[in-house]
Design a binder for these strands. Structure first.
Lengths: 353, 353
DNA sequence: ATTGATTGCACCATCGATTGTGCAAAAAGA
DNA sequence: TCTTTTTGCACAATCGATGGTGCAATCAAT
């Protein structure tokens, strides 16, 4: 019973075919037919016709009428790193399990683009929006609020909507401590040998810097001037920062706290320009987990942010009618060098393996 | 001029406010007003009212009427690896530059899920669909065809729609050759030391295997039985394959062709279970590029598939009215060990770096 | 002052589904 | 048999935007 190039079947087509009215067809096919006291046999007839003619509802029409779309959005800064791509992966799984349709879009950490993108999503009447790593969550909130769309911040908090973020302060403490302890008592790390590279002036970076400084002072006695080298979230800027440091000092610091895997890529670019031997004794801590990063030829300690729990919590909150506007902290996990963790892909069954 | 919790403004609201008809308002706001010979001053008035009241078009209504949505879809197998996430990143940029709205969804390499997802997208009247790495492109084609949606295959070819894929045969030859040549004349690689792990029975894997076998025979004189170890696209299956091999042979092969970064993660999991020293002399070729993978403590030669060119070609083809149903091969790039390439993120301006 | 062309816009059907309301026919009760 | 209740469904308005058609009012030409 192929559709020979014809248009898609509508409830009106089925209405004619079945001899019922369009509203009856609609009720049968969207599940509200019992409420409308439609005969089982009528429903059966319509259902079989629908199947024969491969009926599928026009979701734009439904959305227009009901002003809901069944779409759930995830706004990402970028796709292309493991933190956000694994977030997208688990997001999709969760949304699907709720019977909705996931939509993932990135806005390149550009406030303008964020707002424009969200406006577009709103114009499609998305039902809910998960705002991950937005540079300006509160403006996004304003748009959602005006449109009556439930929304929640992830990864970077806002002040107007509930937020689920990882505990950057604790994570940074753990990571910094692990870096320091990696150096044995024989040749302990000195305060002036421990630096933090990467990040910008966002909540996550600030908290990580605070954790870094606190634990550094606790364990090494003091923090040092210029131990923080913000570079934005750009590999190239980070590379330049390392080049500058190297030109100035003739070596890399032995202890490196790197704010994200994106910044870590900047370190790679630096390394590609220099002989391997120039930094065999360094210890890197990276506030992000990447399985390949964990196996590099120097000790790499990583933080894995728990995207599963973050999203689970976010889903829980977004279901509430009036969730409190507060920040929920999710504990991240310290990952020792040479560790290959399972990820969201592992829950996918592979067919003909 | 805040919307104090009111509904969003519609053309009817603006129609009342301006004293014009709704169709005039519509024409002004969607750009067809010159064709409708509407006075500049009228247009100006309506535009300013629209701005005052923060009018944004209801895209579901527009889509319903015009049976187009402005959405362009990308169907991915998975989000969570660098190949597909960088494809998503590039895709978004390209779609945006065409003034459309990108929608990226993954279907987990599950034929059922692929079809269901595409049906959903069709129900939203997406305008175009890029089908990347689908397990069953021809069934997806059937759906698109029936719905009159322009579509194109990427990464894995179909037989019913034009396809843009990377030249897996050539890429595999290059990669295999590079692995072999990495071993000096002093201690050359023997045919029985070179294996291919990963992949399944899809077009890409078959072509890569063919390239692998051909060049292996050419350079090393022969291929060996059992040199192909398909494991699906699952880290765990791949890990198990390595464990089995290791249990059997007491070591890893010195030359390893790994079908994708996902399979490479399986190797990492294997390595995490074994001392580093157990495989210092191996050379890995991976048919995928991952910046961190390139810097591992053994030589890793990678293939970077040219997603930019693939997508550019795909966009070009999809604009054509009746593109030929043929396969377009895009040359991939060989990436030597310790190389950090630029990616799609580099074209994003970082704000407050 | 007519006629004809042009300008500027209003009217209305339409896209496909949802939903409140109303009304016959059938069943139940008197 | 006549009312009352229940069953089963049809009708029609509606969501917001689009685009074909038609018709006054203005202007130009004779």
């Amino acid at each position: 019973m192929k559709q020979q190039g014809k248009k898609k079947a509508t409830i009106y087509d089925l209405s004619v075919l079945s001899g019922c009215s369009a509203s009856t067809v609609s009720a049968v096919l969207n599940g509200t037919w019992r409420k409308r006291r439609i005969k089982e046999s009528t429903a059966e007839l319509i259902r079989s016709l629908a199947e024969q003619h491969q009926y599928t509802a026009n979701l734009q029409a439904r959305g227009l009428r009901s002003s809901r779309s069944g779409l759930v959005g995830l706004l990402l800064p970028v796709h292309d790193n493991r933190y956000f791509s694994s977030m997208a992966q688990t997001f999709e799984a969760q949304v699907r399990s709720h019977g909705k349709c996931p939509v993932v879009v990135s806005a390149c950490r550009d406030p303008q683009e964020e707002l424009a993108t969200v406006e577009t999503l709103i114009s499609y009447s998305i039902d809910e929006l998960f705002i991950a790593g937005a540079t300006d969550p509160d403006s996004v909130h304003a748009l959602c609020e005006a449109a009556g769309i439930r929304h929640i911040n992830i990864d970077l908090p806002g002040t107007k909507a509930p937020s689920v973020i990882s505990d950057n302060y604790q994570g940074a403490r753990m990571l910094t401590q692990a870096i320091i302890q990696r150096f044995g008592a024989a040749d302990p790390l000195l305060p002036e040998e421990l630096f933090l590279f990467g990040g910008r002036n966002d909540h996550a970076s600030r908290e990580r810097i605070r954790g870094f400084r606190d634990i550094k002072s606790e364990l090494l006695g003091r923090d040092t001037d210029g131990s923080i080298q913000p570079t934005g979230y750009s590999p190239n800027m980070t590379q330049k920062a390392f080049e500058a440091f190297y030109a100035r000092e003739g070596k890399l610091p032995r202890g490196l706290f790197i704010n994200s895997s994106i910044n870590f890529e900047g370190l790679l670019r630096f390394m590609a320009q220099h002989p391997h031997e120039a930094f065999t004794d360094i210890v890197v801590g990276c506030y992000d987990y990447d399985p390949f990063g964990s196996f590099l030829p120097f000790p790499v300690i990583m933080i894995r942010q728990d995207t599963e729990s973050m999203l689970a919590k976010a889903f829980e909150l977004i279901e509430e009618s009036r969730p409190a506007v507060k920040i929920h902290l999710i504990q991240p996990e310290l990952v020792h060098p040479r560790t290959a963790l399972n990820g969201p892909l592992d829950s996918i069954r592979d067919i003909d393996a």
